[in-house]
């Protein structure tokens, strides 16, 4: 192993000066667009690749989308073996299965940027661009407490059972702790409109009074709103989604009382990561380290700044 690293390092050292003007290849590996947020993330990845290929003619980008972790591992192995990539930008499907393959890329001497989900082992990546999941939950919770200073009964829709979801919910629970807000029930809506519609219908059957809903995602918020509307219930004062879907931001901007706010978890972070990687490859500017993109509360006042009409999300 060490031998390999040394050899690779030597090869790099020998090759670099000569290759300064040569084309370098950047691999981008992300999950496929299977739900709204991922769709947005795909859009921003493609957009960043197109833009950066113009700006940096000496960079070549390879973009691969995977339907599951195993497929993503194969994608990365193929990139390393057949394209001999100089840098990898990866948004891991799951942390554990991808740690090994990404470490192998790092061992080959290539630059590694990890986005959103961390790997299981520290120190592999050169750059970590992360969303702030506990922060996402915390900002949401703080908004809830600010809207209901006297407390109230709420229901919570959770995403697909994952670390991300757990971190968000923990952050949320910490923020509302001691505020008098009572969580009646939590169920998984799987970041899916149909599932959240069904879950919300059943919550409405179960509880005669619900003051507010933390839908934790804009796709789920749409399902929740449809269920409330169909039931004709007026006890629910508002629904807080998240992640900043453009339709929902537009409704906040236009002052819809049911959607008073949103919390960002921008899919555009993938674009930031690709851009930083390009900078790191082509210049001597220091870009390694950790780069956290915080979750911001969007209200009618600042909604216009977060409305991107061209994004699919």
């Amino acid at each position: 192993m060490h031998m390999k690293v040394i050899l690779a390092g030597t090869a790099m050292a020998l090759a670099l000066p000569a290759a300064a003007q040569e084309t370098q290849t950047v691999g981008v590996s992300i999950p496929a667009a299977t739900h709204g947020w991922a769709g947005g993330m795909n859009y921003f990845a493609q957009e960043a690749v197109d833009r950066l290929e113009e700006v940096y003619p000496q960079l070549d980008f390879v973009l691969a989308t995977a339907g599951d972790a195993a497929e993503q591992v194969s994608d990365i192995e193929d990139m390393l073996a057949t394209r001999n990539i100089d840098a990898l930008v990866v948004l891991p499907f799951e942390s554990d299965p991808l740690t090994g393959p990404v470490a192998a890329v790092a061992d080959s001497g290539a630059w590694v940027t990890v986005v959103d989900r961390g790997l299981s082992q520290e120190g592999i990546e050169d750059l970590y661009v992360a969303g702030d999941n506990p922060g996402f939950g915390r900002v949401s919770g703080e908004f809830m407490t600010s809207q209901m200073p006297d407390g109230g009964d709420i229901v919570v829709l959770r995403g697909i059972p994952t670390t991300i979801d757990n971190e968000r919910v923990e952050g949320f629970e910490e923020a509302i702790d001691g505020s008098g807000i009572n969580v009646l029930a939590m169920e998984h809506g799987n970041w899916n409109r149909d599932d959240s519609f069904t879950v919300m219908q059943d919550f409405l059957s179960r509880y005669p009074n619900i003051d507010a809903v933390w839908a934790s995602d804009d796709d789920m918020a749409i399902g929740v709103l449809a269920a409330i509307e169909a039931a004709g219930r007026d006890d629910v004062q508002f629904v807080l989604g998240g992640a900043g879907m453009k339709e929902m931001i537009a409704r906040t901007r236009d002052g819809d009382p049911m959607i008073p706010a949103n919390v960002t978890y921008p899919p555009a972070m993938i674009g930031t990561a690709i851009e930083l990687t390009a900078v790191g490859l082509t210049s001597s500017a220091p870009v390694s380290g950790e780069f956290t993109i915080g979750s911001v509360l969007i209200t009618p006042d600042n909604a216009e700044d977060y409305y991107f009409p061209d994004s699919p999300f």
Binding site: A32, G39, R193, P312
Partner: peptide, 11 residues
Amino acid sequence: VTWLADGGTLS
């Protein structure tokens, strides 16, 4: 359908 929706949602 993913292609029609550009990975997002058709409304």
